[in-house]
Design a protein around this nucleic acid. Structure first.
Lengths: 223, 223
DNA sequence: TAGATTGTTAATCGATTAACAATC
DNA sequence: TAGATTGTTAATCGATTAACAATC
C-alpha cells in the first residue's frame, strides 16, 4: 500500500477521469436526494452513464473510499469527490457579455448549488448597464480589473460575440484570471498557465450531423 | 494507393478527428473571409489551435486535398470538409424548452450559417405559446410528432430542466429523432442508434475549478 | 463461512506526435 | 533543380476494458 493521501499534491489524475468526476458528483447528489445511503459501483456507474470498470478505475485515483463486498457510502463519496474537484469551497466567477446567452448563464441556478458564485456581470454596451439579471447589476467592462482584484476572481466566462472574445480574454488574463470558459465561437490564444475550456453549440451540432449523415447513407445502401 | 474515395461509405474517421473537423471548417471560413486563397498545414493548424502534425493526420482520413510543396486551397478544402461533415445540406432542428437558454439558442445566428435551420420551438408551458423568438412561434410540446414527421427532423435540442429531459428525449426518439443535443444536466437513456451529445455548463466549470485548485496548492508549496 | 463487491492488474484499443520519404 | 510542404509511418502515450485477487 502506498502512502498516497488526499493531500498529496504529487498524485495526478488523468484528464479523462477529471472530466467525469463532476458527472459522478451529480449522480451521487441525486442518490443522496433520493435518500440512498449506500450504492455499488454498478449502480453508480449506471446513474452516471458509464460502465462500472471505468468508474472503479476512476475512483481508484482518488483513494479507497469503498468497502469490498458492500459498496460506497453515498454521502461520504460525494464529499470526497467534491473536495477533490475543489467545489467544497466557493469560486467567484465573472461573466462578460450579457446578451441572450449571458442572461441564460446568469440565471442558471445550477451555478450557486455547485460551488460557483456570480460576483459580476460585465458588458461593453452602456445600454445594458444598470439592468439587473438574477439580482446582479450589469456593469461596464472597464470594471473588470477592479472586480477581479477585490473579489479574488480566478474564473471568467466569455459570452460575447467571437470578434470581442480575444480582447476580453487578454484583459481577463492581464487582470489575473487563470481559468476561462469560452462560449464564443473562437480559438483563444492565452499564455501558459491559463486554462481555457470551450463550449460551442455549432460544433456539437456538426458532430451530430456527421453521424446523422452516415446513418442516412447506411440506410440508402440497404434500400 | 488505395481506391478510397469521398463516397466510400466503409471508411471511418476516428471520433477525435470528427470532433475537430468543425474547428477546421470554422478556421477555413475565417481564412476565406479574410481573402486568403492558399494556406499551409502550419497556418491552418495555428488558426485552429492544434499542431500541424495532428491537422495533417486528421485531413489524411478525408483524402489528399493538399499539394506538396504548396499547401491547401482554402476554398476547396473548406468545401471538402463541409461535405464530409454533412453541412452542405440543410438540417432541420427542433428546440424543446424555451426558457432563458432556449431563447439564446433560438437567437443564435451561427445556426443558420452552419447548415442548421430551426424549424420549431416547443414548450410545455402554455404561457409561452404564441410568443415569437427569432421569427419562430413557440408551440405546444404536443406538436412534436407532427413537426418531426412533416419536416423530416433528425436532430433535436433539449433545453428543458433536468426533470423533464428524459421524457422529452423519449418522445423525440419515439417521433423519429435520432440525434439529440442535451443541455439539461441529466444523463439520458436512449436506444442504440440514437446519438446524444451533452453540453453542461457546470461540468465545464468544475473541470476548471479542479485545475484552478491545483494551481493554488502549487503556489502554496512555493510560498 | 459464503457471497458480494471493491481495487488493481494487464491487455487492448485509440489518439498523438515526430520524423521523413514522397512529390509538387 | 532546389526548396517547401504534404501525406504517411512508426513510436509513444493515454484511455478503456475485462478479469480476478483481495477482502469486507
Amino acid at each position: 500500500m502506498s502512502a498516497r493521501t488526499s493531500s498529496d499534491p504529487a498524485r495526478d489524475i488523468p484528464e479523462a477521469t477529471v472530466a467525469r468526476l463532476p458527472v459522478y458528483l451529480r449522480a451521487l447528489t441525486t442518490l443522496v436526494d433520493a435518500g440512498t445511503s449506500t450504492c455499488s459501483s454498478e449502480e453508480l456507474a449506471q446513474a452516471a452513464g458509464v460502465n462500472s470498470a471505468k468508474l472503479r478505475k476512476d475512483l481508484s485515483y482518488l483513494g479507497s473510499y469503498g468497502t469490498r463486498g458492500v459498496g460506497y457510502d453515498v454521502e461520504y463519496l460525494r464529499y470526497q469527490i467534491a473536495r477533490e474537484i475543489g467545489v467544497t469551497q466557493d469560486w467567484p466567477v465573472v461573466i462578460v457579455g450579457i446578451g441572450n446567452l449571458g442572461h441564460a448563464l446568469a440565471n442558471y441556478s445550477g451555478f450557486r448549488s455547485r460551488g460557483f458564485r456570480v460576483v459580476a456581470l460585465l458588458d461593453a454596451d452602456p445600454r445594458r448597464h444598470q439592468e439587473a439579471v438574477a439580482g446582479v447589476v450589469v456593469r461596464p467592462f472597464a470594471d473588470l480589473e477592479r472586480i477581479v482584484e477585490e473579489q479574488d476572481v480566478a474564473i471568467g466566462v466569455i459570452a460575447t460575440p467571437a470578434v470581442a472574445s480575444q480582447d476580453v480574454a487578454d484583459r481577463m488574463v492581464a487582470a489575473g484570471i487563470t481559468s476561462i470558459l469560452n462560449f464564443a465561437p473562437s480559438v483563444l490564444a492565452v499564455p501558459d498557465g491559463v486554462d481555457v475550456r470551450k463550449v460551442d453549440l455549432s460544433i456539437e451540432l456538426q458532430i451530430l450531423a456527421y453521424h446523422e449523415q452516415r446513418k442516412s447513407s447506411a440506410a440508402e445502401v440497404i434500400a
